[in-house]
């Protein structure tokens, strides 16, 4: 059970990483300053979670 739970934990980091990358990609594609700012704010928790800071 512990092993499965550990794998599930890693999957969550993977999910956060993939969504984070998609947010970055959308940011790069964006032409609207407002959207850029919002993407930047939304990206913050994804980056810090994947880096295991928070």
């Amino acid at each position: 059970m512990q092993t499965i739970q550990t794998i599930i934990g890693y999957l969550y980091y993977a999910i956060a990483a993939v969504i984070g990358i998609v947010i970055v990609a959308n940011f790069v594609r964006s032409r609207d300053v407002r959207k850029m700012l919002l993407y930047a704010i939304v990206l913050s928790p994804f980056v810090l979670r994947v880096l295991r800071v928070k």
Partner: peptide
């Protein structure tokens, strides 16, 4: 799959950014 994910994130930006900023 990836293109649909990118569109999903884009669709949800108003919602997700609202919730995130409410946290701040």
């Amino acid at each position: 799959a990836l293109r649909i994910l990118a569109r999903t994130v884009d669709d949800l930006l108003p919602l997700v950014s609202t919730v995130t900023i409410v946290g701040i």
